[in-house]
């Protein structure tokens, strides 16, 4: 057991080396295997292209038009006009700022809390299963439901937050900062378990031998965390941060329920929603969505290339 874990830990530490590419003449057998692979995966691949590829390309195409759904006759090709308009609009940059702020704050707090919870789950001697279940409950709740729960909690007429903090009739959703605080609390509560789950996976991969050796050498608890646990978990932490950042950047549900975008709490997803669904400006909305998608890809690129996150570390997805 300990051999396999340390082996896997060692392989994490080793720099990722790409196998050298060589042109090999395929044997009959491997050609068959390759064909079989395509035939088995082919139908799923076609479906994937149909349900994701087509809409993406269509959205990019539509984003080049001035097109209102209720006025199909007035559809005009305007090239990159929508993009130019969006990128020079103050509202876009303001919402970009809000989105970034929410992302940074929630992911940072979630990382700290998630790490603490992962440690608790990892170290717990008794009641492990109930404990893990309890920690994971918020993650099992649908985002809209958790947003409603927190909207009621922060409500100034029947919420429990104000009486608890002695705030009287303070209206949390009446100001930008207090509303954003409430939104962040709801997000953090909802997704910290996801973070802690990913971190727990990383934590479980650190061999006990390392910690025992550190203890024998006289390392204090904090030193063990800083010198042994964190460096060995780097890959898991980066993967957790990547997943959560991508999710947090697309935040929509909580804000839609809690403030409906009032008090300048709108994010970029909300901007896309308002142009596409409320105003039925399909072209403009598609352009916002494309920009949002590009930003998400940039974040992923940043993590993968600049921070060298190794995706094979952990697997998982939201919901």
């Amino acid at each position: 057991m300990s051999i396999t874990t340390s082996a896997s830990a060692a392989s994490q530490d080793a720099p990722v080396t790409k196998p050298a590419r060589r042109k090999v003449r395929l044997t009959d057998r491997s050609r068959h295997e390759r064909n079989l692979g395509w035939l088995l995966a082919g139908p799923a691949f076609i479906v994937m292209v149909a349900v994701t590829g087509y809409p993406i390309l269509n959205a990019i195409w539509l984003s080049l038009f001035d097109y209102r759904l209720t006025d199909p006759a007035g559809r005009d090709f305007i090239g990159l006009g929508n993009y130019g308009m969006i990128l020079t609009d103050a509202l876009f940059w303001q919402q970009f700022g809000i989105t970034t702020l929410i992302t940074v704050v929630t992911v940072a707090v979630e990382l700290v809390l998630g790490f603490a919870l992962a440690m608790v789950m990892h170290r717990a001697l008794y009641l492990r299963t109930p404990l893990r279940t309890a920690i994971l409950v918020p993650y099992g709740i649908i985002t809209v439901v958790s947003a409603y729960a927190w909207a009621y909690a922060f409500s100034n007429t029947y919420g429990f937050v104000n009486p608890m903090l002695g705030l009287g009739e303070f209206d949390w959703f009446g100001g930008t900062w207090s509303a954003l605080f409430a939104v962040c609390v709801a997000e953090i509560w909802k997704t910290t378990p996801f973070m802690s789950l990913l971190l727990l996976a990383g934590l479980a991969q650190i061999p006990d031998d390392y910690l025992e050796a550190a203890k024998v050498d006289g390392a204090k608890a904090w030193q063990r965390v800083k010198r042994v646990i964190l460096p060995n978990m780097k890959a898991a932490i980066m993967v957790a941060l990547l997943f959560r950042t991508l999710d947090a950047f697309r935040i929509f549900d909580s804000i839609f329920i809690m403030t409906a975008g009032a008090q300048n709490t709108e994010t970029l997803s909300f901007l896309a929603y308002r142009q596409t669904i409320s105003r039925v400006m399909i072209g403009l909305g598609s352009a916002v969505s494309v920009i949002l998608a590009i930003l998400v890809v940039l974040i992923a690129f940043l993590f993968l290339k600049v921070f060298k996150t190794d995706l094979s570390q952990a697997r998982g997805d939201r919901k």
Binding site: N156, F173, G174
Partner: peptide, 10 residues
């Protein structure tokens, strides 16, 4: 209280 977020029911 909460005037800027009040709808009909509020």
């Amino acid at each position: 209280a909460g005037f800027t977020t009040a709808g009909e029911e509020d």
